[in-house]
Design a protein around this nucleic acid. Structure first.
Lengths: 191, 191
DNA sequence: TTCAAATATAAACAATTGTTGACTTAAAAT
DNA sequence: ATTTTAAGTCAACAATTGTTTATATTTGAA
């Protein structure tokens, strides 16, 4: 094992710095300084600044898609599937908060060939969620609703989750977090 | 009437450009070019690039706070208040989608004295929402729940709304939008 | 020991960026 | 008619930025 831990360090440092200052505001010199070496050395680990962004964005996106695909392919009922998706989101957010923060905040900074690719992946994920909801409506387990709106709302409602773990002051209990969020999404706030 | 419409034009152009490219990626030269004049002339309308950001951010924030304060001071029940808040968010998002987009996406680009000010306003707004929810729980109209989590979830769930209006392809009906979102937040997706 | 790969430095580049100062011209108010 | 104000141009600045090239040092394997 151990495949150039130096590169991993460099990428992790990049990730944390980008989370702190934003991608555009983070300079290659910032990253190098925190690593303790000169800027030019950074280019032994990465081809360009854009590549840092691409690497994390597409890797984490693939992880979300994989999980979603597995859940969709199960024989669960739609409400069970939705719970699974929420659960998975919480787990990823808890384990890789900086990667998720990057996905939420920095994807707009991709430049043109990759930007379109990424937006397509994003739309695809939205479509998968919409399919899940439509399934539930047809099964009679979800109420009649505008699936497009519900999709946007539910995905948006779990986008903040990384924040509960990226800013380490608290370290929220994932089990309780899941219980609360599932309760709110499935049954709302009314008694 | 008519108070220097030229300045308004400049600010509106800035706003749209920032929405398209992001604040950091939008240069003063970009804005000037779209206005049809030289960069230097921009500084007859604004003191600095940061000032453009501050102006919109604090102005729109104040609008949200005002509305929230008025709703909180009413004699409505908590569930009615929550509906009012959601309704207000939709109206602002429909009328000023670019301003709202700025609030959602660009507040991190504020620099230090103003950044803290803005974060404080943000936290205050969250506290006001939490108060509304706690009220509802005490009145017995909302179920028992972790108010901190519910606050984050609800606010996050309506953050995407500007997107339904900023990208003009559709121009969604605000009445139906409100019906759907209120239904989902209050009662969830289950039948 | 030798040799190649990994790790690092130093210096410089070309481009971009926010901002300023000195002037000019057009429009409005006195 | 004169003067103030609004609107605009031109040239230049200092700083920052991503990236490259050439070169040196360290390290692990042969």
């Amino acid at each position: 094992m151990k495949v150039s831990t130096r590169r991993e360090d460099f990428l992790q440092t990049s990730l944390e710095l980008i989370h702190e200052k934003g991608f555009k505001a983070t300079t290659m010199r910032d990253i190098a300084e925190r690593m303790g070496f000169d800027v030019s050395n950074s280019y032994n680990y990465i081809k360009s600044k854009q590549d840092i962004l691409e690497l994390f964005l597409f890797r984490t996106s693939a992880e979300f898609h994989n999980t979603m695909d597995n859940i969709l392919a199960c024989s669960y009922t739609a409400d069970e599937k939705l719970k699974q998706v929420i659960s998975a989101h919480i787990q990823v957010a808890a384990k890789k908060p900086f990667e998720v923060a990057l996905m939420v905040n920095e994807w707009r900074n991709l430049s043109e060939p990759k930007y379109n690719e990424y937006v397509a992946l994003r739309n695809l994920y939205e479509k998968k969620m919409a399919k899940l909801l439509r399934e539930g409506v047809q099964q009679g387990v979800f109420k009649e609703m505008d699936v497009k709106i519900a999709t946007a709302l539910i995905l948006s409602s779990i986008r903040w989750l990384y924040d509960a773990y990226a800013n380490t002051k608290k370290a929220m209990n994932p089990i309780e977090l899941e219980r609360q969020i599932v309760g709110l999404v499935l049954e709302g706030v009314l008694k």
